[in-house]
Amino acid sequence: MDTTTALFYVFSAVLLFSGFRVITARSPVHAALFLVLAFFSASCVWMLLHAEFLAISLVLVYVGAVMVLFLFVVMMLDINLDLLRQGFWKHFPVAGLVGVIIALEMAWVLQRGFNVPDPKPMPGAETVPNTKLLGIEIYTDYLYPVQLAAVLLLVAMIAAVALTLRRRKDVRGQNPSEQVKAKKADRLRIVKMDAVRELPSQPAAETTAPAADAAKGKA
C-alpha cells in the first residue's frame, strides 16, 4: 500500500465518522462543526484525485461561507432541542424506511456510473491545466445540465427573498424610497411673525366707566 492509498483510507474514514456525527450530535453547533470536518475531508480526497479546483471551491464556498452562515443562524436562533426530539422514536420506522430506499437508489445510480467506457484523451491534455479542462467539459458536453442548475438556483434565490419579505406588525421599519422622495417643503413650513405684538390702547373714559358702574351697584 502506497502513501496515496493510505491517505485515501484515512480521509475516507474521517469523512464517514464526521458525517455520522453530524446526524447524531446532540448540540447543533457541534453538528455544524462536524460538517465542516466532513467538508475538509472531502476536499482532501479530491486533492488526492487531482481535482484541485473542486477541492479549493469546496473549502472556500462551503467551509468559508455556508458553514459560517449556518453557525451564525444556529447560535442566533437558540433552538430548543427538547422540542425537536419529541416524537423521534415514533417516526423512526418511517424515517428508517425512507433512508434505506434513498441509500438503495444512490447505490444503483453510483453502480451505473462506474460502468462507463474509458474516455478518449483530449489532444494536448497533458499541457492544459485542470481548471481549463473542467471548464471545457462543463460548457461543451454538460452545457444544458449547467443551465438547468443555474435556473434552479435562480428560482431558489427568488423564493428565499420572497419568503423573507413578510410584513410584521410588531416591527417598525423605514421605507428608504419614501425617505429619498422627502422634500424640505413637505417637512417644514416657515411662517413669518412679528417678534413683539403691541396691544391696542384704550381711552381713559372707557376704562373708568365700568369701575364707576360697579361702585354704584354696590351702593
Score class of each variant (00 low, 15 high):
Lys181Gln: 10
Tyr9Pro: 00
Leu110Gln: 15
Ser41Asp: 01
Phe20Tyr: 03
Thr208Asn: 10
Gly217Leu: 11
Ile79Lys: 05
Leu152His: 07
Arg167Ala: 06
Gly87Tyr: 03
Val161Pro: 01
Gln147Asn: 14
Arg187Tyr: 03
Ala13Ile: 01
Ser27Gly: 01
Ile23Ala: 13
Leu58Met: 14
Gly64Cys: 01
Asp213Ser: 12
Ile190Trp: 05
Leu35Asn: 06
Leu148Met: 07
Met193Gln: 06
Pro93Arg: 01
Gln86Asp: 13
Phe11Gln: 13
Ala6Tyr: 10
Leu152Val: 06
Pro93Ser: 03
Lys169Trp: 13
Asp194Met: 11
Lys192His: 08
Asp78Tyr: 13
Val59Thr: 14
Tyr144Thr: 12
Ala55Val: 00
Ser18Pro: 02
Pro176Ser: 09
Arg197Pro: 02
Asp118Ile: 05
Ala212Trp: 06
Leu152Trp: 14
Val128Ala: 11
Leu69Tyr: 03
Ala209Met: 14
Arg187Cys: 06
Ala204Asn: 14
Ala31Asn: 01
Leu15Gly: 03
Ala149Tyr: 06
Ala38Gln: 12
Lys132Gln: 13
Ala160Phe: 12
Ala95Val: 04
Leu37Gly: 03
Glu206Cys: 09
Ile23His: 04
Asp78Val: 05
Gly64Asn: 00
His91Ala: 07
Leu81Glu: 15
Leu148Trp: 04
Thr131Arg: 07
Arg189Ala: 04
Thr131Lys: 01
Asp2Arg: 11
Pro200Gly: 06
Pro123Tyr: 02
Glu206Pro: 00
Ala125Ile: 05
Ala160Arg: 15
Lys132Cys: 14
Val116Thr: 08
Pro28Ile: 00
